[in-house]
Design a protein around this nucleic acid. Structure first.
Lengths: 115, 115
DNA sequence: GAAACTAGTTACCTTTTGGTAACCTAATAT
DNA sequence: ATATTAGGTTACCAAAAGGTAACTAGTTTC
């Protein structure tokens, strides 16, 4: 039975995984990132993509993603003002992680959910 | 600007990612899985590995992971009884996902957290 | 008889997350 | 004047997640 011998390395791993999870955790962050992976979008477009998200939650989650530098927010002073959200390079770098999440989700569904 | 044209495929993706996230979401599930990736462990050993988890939460999370068939629970009727937890093949199949989480977490920390 | 070890459970409480409904500002169209 | 569009905000509420402290059962050692 192998133990977590190098405790510093182990703690470092736990820290890194917690960091990553904090960024993508919650009901709506991954759907928003997936929506933006199909191209830059405006507030209303994301809202239309994700059917049952409320404006309050969408606004809140977009702010959180922006603070973590996953997305950018650009204001155009057209009339009426439009706002464009886009994935940053850091946001795009989530691609492989999200692919794995998706892949494993399908595997899980095949094995356990079974419908 | 590309949209999510194939709506059925898109909904399927969202469903799969939500399934996966439900299994690994929360403050303690990934730490528990990482702990068990170092070998089968008993309740008290996992508790020692994860320093600040309370027995209530550990018990709760182990039950959830067992229900999702990520871990197995084996009772030995020694004196006093001991219980061994282990990753199932499905649990082990989370390996690549967790590697990506870890990798991205380190990348994120280098780029954003910066200390 | 008292303490310790195993693997938890229970009651209670706080914090975080998610959700609804109504409202706001500025401009343009009817 | 009124409705509509865009991009939100606000107040209020419910549910889920997380945490603390104390307690349980059975057995063994001091």
């Amino acid at each position: 039975m192998v133990k977590c011998i190098d405790k510093t390395a182990c703690r470092f791993k736990l820290m890194a995984s917690r960091d990553a999870m904090e960024v993508i955790q919650g009901k709506w962050k991954i759907p928003i990132i997936i929506s933006l992976s199909f191209g830059n979008k405006r507030f209303g477009e994301i809202k239309k993509d994700i059917a049952d998200i409320s404006p309050k939650i969408l606004s809140q989650e977009l702010k959180a993603l922006e603070m973590n530098q996953i997305i950018s927010r650009t204001l155009f002073d057209s009339m009426p003002v439009t706002v464009e959200y886009a994935l940053t390079p850091l946001g795009k770098s989530l691609g492989p992680l999200l692919d794995e999440v998706l892949k494993w989700g399908l595997h899980f569904r095949k094995q356990v959910v079974k419908k």
